[in-house]
């Protein structure tokens, strides 16, 4: 593991890694066996933020991070969910144009490869999924939408995501699902947690 450690204020260390896969592996290792004093782990695209509380100190957290033994490649979690999607999103035609595929081929590509949630961000329960068909990599929309509906299924960069509730958003919308991905009454409240594997399936109208 080639990690650069940056101290981030009094109570956090930002671990910078080369690739998302390394972030995922380190997150898995620390989440499975969290050293004392660490209260929050925030995985992101190239970094893992490790937040701790006194009396734990930076040096102890840095040692614990460097001592972690991330499993190469294989994830500890094997949970898999299936999300039925109706592929009729407002940006489906744009995505087809951008990828050179037909709309049907976009739907097929989205369903044929399993995705994995790498990290959450943007909003509670918004999982950034990776591992999909590389042909589906598209830029964000040039203009964000003020309102993206709950359950919108979207693409941006190498990621796919499902909007957990109505919010602004700049991703390309390819479809929608009725699967509830965020429910504060559930434990855990997020369906799409880091490590969860996702298969999209085409739903019929």
């Amino acid at each position: 593991m080639n990690a650069r450690l940056h101290r981030c204020g009094e109570h956090a260390v930002l671990v910078e890694l080369g690739r998302l896969e390394e972030v995922v592996a380190l997150y898995d290792a620390l989440a499975a066996d969290t050293p004392p004093g660490i209260v929050d782990l925030v995985p992101a695209a190239r970094t893992l933020l490790v937040r701790f509380e006194p009396p734990t100190r930076h040096a102890e957290v840095e040692s614990a991070v460097l001592a972690a033994r991330p499993a190469g490649g294989r994830r500890v979690t094997t949970e898999e969910v299936v999300i039925p999607v109706l592929y009729d999103g407002d940006d489906l035609a744009d995505v087809a144009r951008l990828t050179g595929l037909t709309e049907r081929e976009v739907a097929a590509a989205h369903t044929q490869t399993p995705w994995t949630v790498a990290f959450c961000g943007f909003a509670p329960g918004f999982g950034y999924m990776i591992g999909g068909d590389p042909r589906l990599a598209v830029p964000r929309r040039t203009e964000s939408r003020v309102r993206v509906p709950t359950g919108a299924v979207a693409l941006a960069g190498e990621f796919s995501g499902v909007y957990p509730r109505e919010s602004p958003g700049g991703w390309q919308l390819i479809g929608r699902t009725e699967t509830v991905v965020w429910d504060i009454a559930a434990d855990p409240p997020a369906l799409l947690r880091p490590g969860v594997r996702v298969r999209f399936a085409e739903a019929l109208p």
């Binding site: 997150y27 989440a31 209260v39 929050d40 782990l41 925030v42 995985p43 933020l49 937040r51 990290f119 959450c120 961000g121 943007f122 909003a123 509670p124 329960g125 918004f126 855990p188 409240p189 997020a190 947690r193 880091p194």
Partner: peptide
């Protein structure tokens, strides 16, 4: 809230 940052909270 603590321990929910990984869910975007």
């Amino acid at each position: 809230r603590r321990r929910h940052s990984h869910l975007g909270v």
